[in-house]
Amino acid sequence: MTDLLAQANSKENREQFLNRLAKQAGRPRHAVKPLAPVNDLPHQVLADQEGADLLATAKKNSEAVAAKVVVKPAAELAAFLDQYLKETGAKRLILPGVTAKRWAQYELADWAKQPAGVTVARWSSDPADRRQNAENANQADVAVGFADYLIAATGTITVPTSPAQGRAFNYLPERYLAIVPQSGLVRSTRQAVEKYEAAYQDGLASSALNFISGPSNSGDIEMELVVGVHGPVECTYLVVSDR
C-alpha cells in the first residue's frame, strides 16, 4: 500500500485536489472576493437591550436550557460556594490551576486555599500530569472554573481552554460551575465571537473555545429529553454582579 501519511501537508496532494475542484467547477482559483453579507442581522440580535434587561434575558434563556443562574457580588461568592458544595454533597472538588491573584479578583483567594468539607484537586499545567488531571476531573463531583462571557440570546457561557483550565476540566466532572463576571454579559454569539477574534489577533493562544449552554443532554431514546449524558449532569452560571 502506498504511504498515504507522507502525502499529508504535501503540495502535490493539495494542489491536485484543489485544481481538480476548480476544473470541475469551471472557476479559476485565487479569485476569492470577500463575503459582503446580504444583511446585518447578527448584529441586531437583542440590540435594543442592555443592563438589567439584558441580564434578565440571559437568565431566562439560560434557565430554558436547564442551567442554574445565580447572581452575587464578589463579597458573597465564598459563602455561596460553601453552601453550594454542602447542598450538592460534593466530596471531591476540582479547581483550575490559576494563581492566587486570579482568585483574588473575585475575593476568593482565601476560599480557594482550602474550601471546606471537600478534597481538592487542582488542574496542573505540567504536561507530565496529563493523566493525573484527567483522573482528577473524572472523579470530581464538582468543578468550579472561570468563564469569559455570558451570551444573553442563547443562555451560553464561553470558556477558552487554557493551561490552567484544560479540556477535561470542562467536560468530565459530574457538576460544573462557572464564575462569569457580569461585565462579560454580551448580547449574541456574534458579539462573543468578535471578541475572541480580536483576542486571537492580540495573541490569545487557546486551542479550544467552548460555548456551553447548560448541562449535557440527549433525546436519542424515544426523543425523551435526558439531562446528563457524557458531560456534566448539572451546570451553574455564577454571575458576579460587581465584576
Partner: peptide, 23 residues
C-alpha cells in the same frame, strides 16, 4: 435540527496549544 437556540456544546477547536495539558 432540534429547535434549540444553540446546541449545548458549540466548540471551536484545533490542535493542542503550547502550555496546554490535554487535547
Amino acid at each position: 435540527a432540534v429547535g434549540q437556540k444553540l446546541t449545548t456544546y458549540c466548540t471551536f477547536s484545533g490542535p493542542k496549544a503550547a502550555g496546554e495539558v490535554d487535547g
